[in-house]
């Protein structure tokens, strides 16, 4: 809808997955998974409400549709957003802090080891990123750094505070695809 849609689409095409852009509720028909890309969370939240997508996506998520949220997408997945009345899907049992690292000057990239992916560390890019402060016990933490949860899974839901779509590394997208089929 708004944000890094193209990069996620390219990633999925590289992995041989067909994609559709979801702009209206009818676009949700027949999809087997959904990615909520990074963008500006206030903008995306408003557009989801104006076009009647918030409720159908939340219902689909509760019914088991695999959903992967990056950055803004992570904020939208969470049940609690600190200091904000920002609309959310309220699916993942997590408390999220928006713009948690500060303004753009604090945005950073770093190699972080993510055991669930195996192999070499993942090159993470954080852009005015949020983090998860705490999670309920049904949530598996996949990456924690300096006490901040940056990558997590709850059943059919996957959330990253950083942007795997801005790298050439397809491991996280593959993880999302295999996690959904092996559930």
């Amino acid at each position: 809808m708004q944000g890094a849609v193209r990069e996620h689409r390219n990633m999925l095409h590289r992995l041989g997955v067909e994609t559709v852009d979801v702009l209206n509720p009818q676009d949700l028909d027949g999809i087997s998974g959904l990615i909520l890309p990074g963008g500006e969370s206030t903008t995306v939240g408003k557009l989801l409400i104006r076009y009647g997508l918030l409720t159908p996506i939340a219902e689909a998520g509760r019914a088991g549709l695999p959903i992967f949220g990056t950055c803004t997408g992570l904020i939208l997945l969470a049940k609690h957003i600190n200091h904000s009345r920002q609309p959310s899907l309220g699916l993942m049992n997590a408390c999220v802090e928006r713009n948690a690292f500060g303004r753009q000057l604090a945005s950073f990239e770093a190699d972080m080891p993510i055991p669930a992916l195996g192999g070499k560390p993942f090159h993470t890019i954080f852009i005015r990123a949020p983090y998860i402060e705490k999670v309920g016990e049904e949530v598996t933490v996949l990456l924690r750094h300096e006490g901040k949860i940056l990558f997590a899974r709850q059943g059919n839901l996957l959330a990253a505070a950083f942007h795997p779509e801005l790298t050439d590394d397809t491991r996280i997208h593959e993880y999302f695809l295999t996690a959904q089929t092996s559930r």
Binding site: Q2, T72, A106, I125, L166
Partner: peptide
């Protein structure tokens, strides 16, 4: 994990913010 080296102000990070603004006003 304290050995993780964070780099700020890189081109990837600058360009990354612009990518997040796409489709917006």
């Amino acid at each position: 994990m304290s050995e993780v080296k964070k780099e700020t102000g890189t081109f990837a990070v600058k360009k990354g913010l612009a990518e997040m603004l796409k489709g917006g006003v």
